[in-house]
Nucleic acid binder design. Structure first.
Lengths: 118, 118
DNA sequence: CCTCTTTATCGCCTATCGACGATAGACGGT
DNA sequence: ACCGTCTATCGTCGATAGGCGATAAAGAGG
């Protein structure tokens, strides 16, 4: 319970709440917003890497992706704006991780809109 | 079984095949492509209307949407390019319907990428 | 053939995206 | 304080998105 491991306190909490209607104009805008954030191969790749690694430093993403550091940073910004990921400052680094609740919310909106009983 | 009802033969068949890898660069591009198509509120609204109505004439969509006819037509074009919908010419009209297999494919790609066992 | 209806396309405009290099800002280590 | 490292932001550029009105294209019907 000591404060030795600062590198590990990135992802766990996730206190963001994803509530809101599942139908109507607002829901459609929210769904479209998530979809837009997913709408680029690099961003999908970032999320895939974060799924595999649980958490990840920006620099590690840059190593694995075929684009420049600044470009990765901009994609991270969009993912963060869509609340699909979270970034935690850890000294000079930033630790990124997925916001699972956002993926759940996206799935809920998708299902509510595109399932026959919806 | 006669050929009286031409207006009804829009959606049923759906012989498009959605096969391909669920992982890797190609899958990520395909997933991003679907997401991009979903990434606009009007296009989500179009799909929602088509879910409700089963099939729909372009003009009916225009009536329900707050944008011009030409704009609706362009959104329909993108949805068609993403193979999320299908359009069948019926005289001077065009009957649109959802391509359910595309939604299934999208969901499969999404799950394969963003589920913990994937 | 002409006309009406319906839909797609064109042209034009503004706004946003996506990429990059360069630079700034924040932190740790010496 | 001074570096070196890591990340975000800025400025720029070309490409694409998204909107509209106007126009073209295609079929139905007189």
């Amino acid at each position: 319970m000591s404060t030795d491991l600062k590198t590990e306190e990135c992802c766990p909490p996730a206190k963001e709440e994803f509530v809101g209607p599942l139908h109507g104009e607002e829901a459609e805008t929210e769904l479209a917003s998530f979809a837009r954030a997913l709408g680029h191969p690099i961003r999908v790749a970032i999320l895939r890497i974060l799924m595999k690694r649980q958490e990840c430093i920006c620099g590690e993403l840059v190593e694995e992706l075929p684009v420049a550091q600044s470009t990765v940073s901009q994609h991270l910004k969009k993912l963060k704006e869509a609340r699909l990921i979270r970034g935690t400052v850890d000294g000079p680094r930033v630790c990124y991780c997925i916001e699972p609740q956002a993926l759940d919310r996206f799935r809920k909106l998708f299902d509510a809109t595109f399932t026959t009983e919806g």
